[in-house]
Design a protein around this nucleic acid. Structure first.
Length: 586
DNA sequence: GCCGTTTTCGGCCCGACTGTTTTCAGTCG
C-alpha cells in the first residue's frame, strides 16, 4: 500500500515539473513511480532492513528520491509536492483524466480562468470561456465537454472481463472484411491487464482506407474521434473507446510489438536496438535504411537476441533479462486446466425453497455445473457451497453437507455406469472466523474431498491479526485451499492488510494451496503475488468461484492473471488429473 | 534526477495526429 502512495506522489511531482517545463526530471520521477508501483516488496520493509542504501538499489531510485521516500516514511508527506502544489493548486489527477487535456493546458486554464477541478472546467466550457483562449478553440472546448461526459459515465477504466468479450466480437466482425489480412488485439488488452483504459486493435491490410471505413461504420459505434489514413478512434455504445491501426503486412509484427507495449518494455527494447546499431519502430527493425525484421514479433525479438516474450509478461519486470538468458518460463495455458474446484450450486437456497432431494437441479444446480464442466472439456468439477456462517448465502451446515454428499455420490455412480472418468468432487467454501477458526466441525470437513476456506467478514482488521487469522486457518489439517486471500474487489474494495510473505511461508510449510480467483473483479491472487508464491514454491489453483454455470468461463481471466504472474503448469494444481490432485491435498 | 560491457558526465524512445497556427506545441500511446 505504501508503495502505491509514494508512487502516486512521484507521479504527481512529475506532472508538476512537466508543467513548469523542467526537462528530464519528469521522466525520472515517472520512472521511479512506475517501478514503485510494481515493486513486489514493501519500501517500508526495505528501508527498515537496509536504510537509504537499500532504497537506492531499487531501479530508478537514486540519492535524491531515496531521501524523499525516507521523508515520506518518517513524516507522511513530501515537501516538494506541497511546494509545487502551492504554485498551481489544481486537482491534476482529475483534470488529466479528461481526454486531450495535459498539464500544459491545465496550467493555462488555471492561470487564465482559475480552473482547479472538473467542476470548474465544466462550468467554464459551458460558458464558452475556453474557446477564446489563445491555443484553444471551438473544437478543443467541445472535446473537453465530451471528455467530461465520458469520464462521469465510465469512470475511465473497465474490468478486463467486461471488455474482452466485446473485443472478440469486434475482431470477429472485422475478420469478415476481405481486405483484412491479419488482425489482433494489442495494448493492455493483449497483455491481459486486470483493468483496461481503451481497446487497441491492429490490422494488416493493403487497403487501409477501406478497412477504416468499415471500422467506423460498425454497429455499436456512436462517435468517431479521429479518422486518419492509417488509424481511427471510435467510441462504442457500451461506453468504451477503441483505436484501430492499419499497417502493411511487412510491418505487422513490429507494429504489434510496438502497440502491445508496455511502454516501459518498449523503451528497453529500443535501447537494446540502439546498442546494436539498429532502430526499432512500429514500422520495423532497421539497420540504417534497411528493414531487417518487421513481419512477425518473433523475428524482432530474435534479432534483438531475445526469446519471444508472451504479452502478459511485457511489463519490464526482468522479463527482458530472462529472455536474453533464454530462461523464460513456459507459461500455463487455458487448455492445461482440467477442472474447477470452486463452483457454487446454491444447494442451501434450493433446500430452503423446498426442493428437497431435487436440490441438485435447476439453473444453478449441480447438474448444470456438471453440464458446463463437460462442455469445457474438464475431467472434474468441485462443488463448494458456502457454509453455515454465511446465512445470507444459505450456507450449509454439517447435516446438509452429508445430504449433499449422498446426492453427489449418486451422480458419480451414474458416470461410472457410463464408463466415463468424469468426477464430481464435494468440497465447501468454509468461513474463516475472526479468530481463525472454521465455521464447520473438523469431523464434517474431514469427510469432504477438499476444503476451501475463505475470509468473508471483518475484512478490515489489523495487519497482525489478519495474518494470524489466516495462518491459523492454514494450520487446520482439513483446510486445503484458501480462497481470494486479500479480499479485494477491483475498483470497489481495497485489499485486507496482511503480511503476505509470512503467509507464504506457512502455506509452504503446511502444504496449503492458494487460490487464484478468476472472477474479473477479484483476480486474487493478483499478478505480483502469484510471482511471489511461485518463487516460494507455494502451489496455487485457478478457480472461478462461479455462482452460475456460465461464470465457469471466467477461468480464462484467472489463467491470464496466472500468466502475468509467470506461473507454469506445474505451479497450478488443477492442471493435474483428479487422482494426482487429490494426493496433493492434505 | 537517474544511469553506465562505449560514459561518473552527458545523455535521456519516438512517431502520429489534432487543432491551432502560419511553422508548431500539446497530447497520446
Amino acid at each position: 500500500m505504501i508503495n502505491q502512495e509514494i508512487a502516486k506522489i512521484f507521479h504527481e511531482i512529475a506532472q508538476y515539473l512537466e508543467m513548469e517545463d523542467v526537462v528530464f526530471k519528469p521522466q525520472a520521477y515517472e520512472k521511479a513511480s512506475l517501478n514503485l508501483e510494481i515493486l513486489p516488496d514493501d519500501v517500508e520493509e526495505i528501508y527498515k532492513k537496509g536504510g537509504i542504501a537499500a532504497l537506492e538499489k531499487i531501479s530508478g531510485i537514486g540519492k535524491a528520491l531515496a531521501k524523499k521516500i525516507e521523508e515520506y516514511l518518517k513524516t507522511g508527506k513530501i515537501k516538494t509536492l506541497k511546494e509545487l502544489k502551492k504554485k498551481t493548486p489544481v486537482n491534476i489527477e482529475e483534470l488529466t483524466a479528461v481526454e486531450g487535456l495535459g498539464v500544459k493546458r491545465i496550467k493555462i486554464l488555471y492561470k487564465k480562468l482559475g480552473i482547479k477541478n472538473l467542476n470548474g472546467l465544466e462550468k467554464a466550457a459551458k460558458k464558452h470561456k475556453i474557446a477564446s483562449l489563445s491555443g484553444f478553440g471551438e473544437k478543443t472546448e467541445n472535446n473537453i465537454l465530451d471528455g467530461i461526459k465520458f469520464l462521469k459515465r465510465s469512470k475511465g477504466r473497465f474490468l478486463l472481463g467486461e471488455i474482452l468479450p466485446n473485443v472478440y466480437k469486434i475482431i470477429n466482425e472485422l475478420k469478415k472484411v476481405k481486405e483484412v489480412e491479419k488482425i489482433s488485439e494489442a495494448g493492455s488488452i493483449r497483455r491481459r491487464k486486470e483493468t483496461i483504459g481503451d481497446v487497441d486493435i491492429l490490422i494488416a491490410s493493403p487497403k487501409p482506407k477501406k478497412v477504416i471505413e468499415h471500422f467506423v461504420s460498425m454497429s455499436g459505434v456512436v462517435r468517431i474521434w479521429g479518422k486518419g489514413s492509417t488509424k481511427a478512434s471510435v467510441r462504442f455504445k457500451k461506453e468504451f473507446d477503441a483505436d484501430l491501426r492499419v499497417v502493411p503486412e511487412k510491418s505487422f509484427g513490429s507494429a504489434l510489438q510496438y502497440f502491445t507495449g508496455s511502454k516501459e518494455h518498449n523503451i528497453v527494447l529500443r535501447k537494446i536496438a540502439i546498442n546494436k546499431g539498429l532502430k526499432l519502430s512500429e514500422y520495423g527493425l532497421f539497420r540504417g535504411a534497411k528493414r531487417i525484421a518487421g513481419k512477425t514479433e518473433e523475428e524482432i525479438y530474435k534479432k534483438l537476441g531475445l526469446q519471444w516474450i508472451p504479452p502478459e509478461m511485457r511489463e519490464n519486470q526482468s522479463e527482458i533479462e530472462t529472455a536474453k538468458a533464454h530462461q523464460l518460463p513456459k507459461l500455463i495455458k487455458l487448455n492445461n486446466i482440467k477442472g474447477d474446484l470452486h463452483c457454487h450450486s446454491h444447494w442451501g437456497a434450493r433446500l430452503r425453497q423446498g426442493f428437497g432431494g431435487q436440490a441438485g437441479k435447476g439453473k444453478q444446480g449441480i447438474e448444470n455445473l456438471i453440464k458446463t464442466a463437460l462442455e469445457m472439456g474438464y475431467e472434474y468439477v468441485g462443488i463448494s457451497d458456502h457454509t453455515k456462517f454465511l446465512a445470507i448465502e444459505h450456507g450449509l451446515n454439517e447435516k446438509q453437507l452429508t445430504q449433499q454428499r449422498k446426492f453427489i455420490d449418486k451422480l458419480n455412480s451414474r458416470f461410472m455406469f457410463h464408463d466415463s472418468c468424469f468426477r464430481i468432487l464435494q468440497g465447501c467454501e468454509a468461513n474463516i472466523m475472526a479468530d481463525g477458526s472454521i465455521d464447520i466441525k473438523d469431523e464434517a470437513l474431514a469427510k469432504l474431498d477438499f476444503v476451501i476456506a475463505g475470509v468473508h467478514s471483518q475484512l478490515k482488521m489489523s495487519k497482525e491479526r489478519m495474518t494470524e487469522r489466516i495462518i491459523k486457518a492454514m494450520k487446520n489439517p482439513n483446510v486445503d485451499i484458501i480462497s481470494h486471500i486479500t479480499g479485494r474487489v477491483i475498483q470497489q474494495r481495497d485489499e485486507s492488510e496482511m503480511d503476505f510473505d509470512k503467509i507464504l511461508k506457512v502455506a509452504k510449510e503446511t502444504g496449503t494451496i492458494l487460490e487464484i480467483n478468476a472472477h474479473p473483479s477479484r483476480l486474487d491472487l493478483k499478478d505480483i503475488n502469484i510471482r511471489k508464491a511461485k518463487k516460494m514454491g507455494v502451489k496455487m489453483i485457478i478457480n472461478t468461484d462461479a455462482h452460475q454455470p456460465e461464470q465457469m468461463y471466467f477461468i480464462e481471466y484467472g489463467v491470464s492473471q496466472a500468466r502475468r504472474g509467470w506461473a507454469e503448469k506445474k505451479d497450478i494444481v488443477n492442471c493435474l488429473p483428479v487422482e494426482k490432485l487429490l494426493k496433493m491435498l492434505k
